[in-house]
Design a binder for these strands. Structure first.
Length: 656
RNA sequence: GCGCCUGUAGCUCAGUCGGAUAGAGCACGAGAUUCCUAAUCUCGGGGUCGGGGGUUCGAGUCCCCCCAGGCGCACCA
């Protein structure tokens, strides 16, 4: 509701300016003024528009503010408008009107016009050669939360998880099984002690050491790599089985934290379908790729980047796409794939069903046979594409976008967004605990699959679940064990997701096991506990889940106007009003790609609710009117919290 | 060398396109429960916002310089 009022206010201010200075002036006035929620003492809404516009029109800010304030007083939902400081306009809403209108509108869908035809979000993209670690989890949680936020805002979103099943990493594990361990058939792999992805975690680091012992052995990797690319022979067969098995393990791990996908495009199919050839033709046609006849890249096809200030600073700004030996570089493949995501390649994969989630949601994977098409489904072709990849890939991502630009796909370049975030590293303290040697001056140690340094996502979740289960058992000894386990899983999921989301994306997370296992204070369980408490109120009133019906049926004919001036009235209003801001924050978060804005908002709402809950009882309120007012505020929290927790992917337990 | 990012309480971090008195959590100390209430709440100490200069009604936030740290800059993936 607040969201809608803010929109009206902007339009109204524009009209007001038009009447005062004429429409031409109004259209040229800065629109970057702020409509913010101030400290409660100032009012419900604060505008700095007079300060911003005063500069533009050369009138004193305070006089301007005064005039606007007078005009705003005619709004029916406005109780009072005051001018403060150098020219802030502080609006105070008519509380009774607001709360009544809010109850009436509950359940009505918010009207949203989608901005995009399809938003594509690619995240996770873990090499399918070993178990997922917490760093991968950060990627997936950020991506998934972005997906949830866009869906909340009414967009059609497709979730992609790119699978590099032909790369060095898978090749190394193939080498490990085939040459080091002599496991040469799929049957041999099936006898590996489970969990398979955890076994490969160790094997992968063992292979690295094996290479270091004798550098000659690197030829086994090349052999495996070629086999994977050709897709034939016993090595390729092992590779296919390994990558698919580990991919399924990754899907299971991600399902534990509520993360799902729509389509899993495989590198092997990109190779088999020769996506690059098509992209290459396009690049040549549009003169974005050039054959170098001289200089250091003689004999290569390059993407010339000279001529733009941001690239000229580099020693060798041009980027090789096709090597002098005719092979294709990593960036080049990425350009082809990005073109497909944007629907510009003029070519598509085939698809087959890969997995069905318990609730019926289907995940497809690609095939090399383009005639295989799932009925009623189409993948790729987004008009907004997010690539969730850590910040170290920024340079590469910039090149991909620049290539689109050079090809003349300006809009597509604008639509391609690199969601860059910092990595998860181990704190020196955690390393010591885990027995990893640390040099004294090092504060952080980066995760490294090769060296086997990192915390597996499953291990973290297991630890959290075990801990949560102990607590649940202590609190609800009579609850059936499978119910206890279910709640524990929900809490573990909430704890991990909140832990990974609360940091800004440019903050390196120094992973600390004790901190990650924390369930008190600013944590996921804190939010979940607020939900349980709020929900319990209506439960105890006997009106769950139809608390909306309850609020409508028991609404008092008149609300006491002096209530809002009391201490309780102020608290009730603040809680109610705070619960109205979700949509604004989600919007802001998605546009700035700062998802921690959502966690902060939800956390603060919960904090406010916990305080209110302790102070004002609902069921035992002194009279029906007070009960209704308090219950309405709690209802606003329930409404907002349900949506907020869903966006964050934090489960909503029935009890804790 | 060049580019990007970071520096805020003992620790881990927020801080909204520049806005009103710099905030949380953890840790530490003291308290709160005859049931919608302890995975919670209340109170307390703790800060030269890395340093210096500038822009303006107003700077943790924008600009310049310096210091410290991280990451990136292949015919590797």
């Amino acid at each position: 509701m607040l969201y809608e009022v803010k929109g009206r206010l902007r339009a109204w201010l524009h009209d007001w300016a038009g009447q005062r200075w004429g429409p031409d002036v109004a259209d040229r006035l800065p629109v970057r003024y702020e409509i913010r929620i101030p400290e409660p003492q100032w009012g419900d809404l604060a505008l700095n528009v007079a300060l911003v516009w005063a500069k533009a029109v050369g009138e004193p800010a305070s006089a301007l503010a005064q005039a606007m304030a007078e005009a705003l007083k005619t709004w029916p939902e406005v109780a009072d408008v005051r001018v403060a400081g150098p020219g802030f306009i502080n609006i105070r809403w008519d509380r009774s009107t607001w709360i009544r209108r809010w109850v009436d509108r509950l359940g009505q869908p918010v009207e949203t016009a989608p901005r995009f035809r399809k938003v594509v979000v690619e995240h996770t993209a873990i090499n399918p050669n070993k178990a997922a670690h917490v760093g991968h989890l950060r990627n997936a949680v950020l991506g998934d939360t972005l997906v949830r936020a866009w869906r909340f805002l009414g967009e059609n979103v497709e979730v992609q998880n790119y699978i590099d099943d032909t790369g060095v990493q898978v090749a190394d594990v193939v080498v490990g099984f085939y040459y080091m361990e002599g496991r040469k058939t799929v049957a041999d792999l099936q006898s590996v002690p489970p969990p398979f992805d955890h076994y490969c975690w160790d094997l992968y680091t063992r292979v690295q050491h094996w290479y270091e012992e004798d550098p000659q052995r690197i030829r086994f990797r090349n052999e495996a790599l070629h086999a994977l690319e050709r897709g034939e022979g016993p090595l390729a067969e092992l590779g296919r089985w390994i990558s698919e098995t580990i991919l399924r393990a990754h899907l299971a791990t991600m399902e534990r934290v509520g993360i799902r996908y729509d389509v899993l495009p495989k590198e092997s199919d990109i190779i088999a379908l020769r996506f690059w050839d098509h992209a290459f033709e396009l690049l040549k046609q549009r003169e974005a790729a050039v054959y170098a006849t001289e200089g250091p890249y003689r004999g290569c096809w390059i993407l010339p980047l000279r001529g733009r200030p941001e690239w000229d600073a580099l020693e060798e700004p041009d980027k090789v796409l096709v090597r002098s030996n005719g092979t294709v570089t990593y960036v080049a493949k990425d350009i082809a794939y990005q073109l497909w995501k944007l629907g510009l390649l003029g070519q598509d994969f085939g698809y087959r069903l890969f997995h069905v989630y318990p609730d019926g949601h289907e995940v497809y994977t690609t095939t090399a046979d383009p005639t295989q098409r799932p009925p009623g489904r189409a993948f790729g072709g987004g008009d907004r594409v997010y690539n969730v990849i850590d910040v170290r890939q920024s340079y590469l991502q910039q090149i991909v976008v620049e290539a689109l630009r050079r090809m003349g796909y300006e809009t597509a370049a604008e639509a391609s967004i690199h969601f860059a975030y910092e990595m998860v590293a181990l704190s020196a303290r955690s390393c010591e605990k885990m027995g990893i040697p640390v040099e004294s001056d090092q504060k952080l140690i980066a995760f490294s699959g090769r060296r086997g340094i990192g915390v597996k996502a499953d291990d973290l979740l297991d630890a959290l679940e075990a801990q949560a289960r102990c607590e649940v058992q202590a609190r609800h000894p009579d609850l059936p064990p499978d119910e206890q386990a279910r709640v524990a899983r929900q809490i573990a999921c909430g704890a991990v997701r909140y832990y990974l989301l609360r940091y800004g994306r440019q903050t390196v997370i120094a992973f600390d096991i004790d901190e990650a296992l924390q369930m008190e204070g600013e944590t996921g369980p804190y939010l979940q506990y607020a939900w349980v408490r709020a929900r319990n109120i209506f439960e105890r009133l006997g009106v769950w889940p139809d608390w909306v019906g309850y609020l409508r049926a028991t609404r008092p004919a008149d609300l006491p106007e002096d209530y809002w001036a009391s201490e309780e009235g102020a608290a009730t209003w603040q809680l109610f009003y705070q619960a109205q801001h979700l949509r604004d924050w989600v919007w802001k978060a998605v546009n700035a790609l700062e998802l921690n804005l959502i966690t902060q908002y939800v956390y603060q709402l919960c904090q406010q609710f916990h305080r209110y809950y302790l102070k004002y009882r609902i069921k035992q309120a002194p009279d029906p009117t007070l009960r209704w007012l308090r219950a309405a505020a709690v209802g606003a929290v329930v409404h907002s919290l349900a949506q907020g927790l869903d966006i964050l992917g934090i489960p909503r337990p029935d009890m804790m």
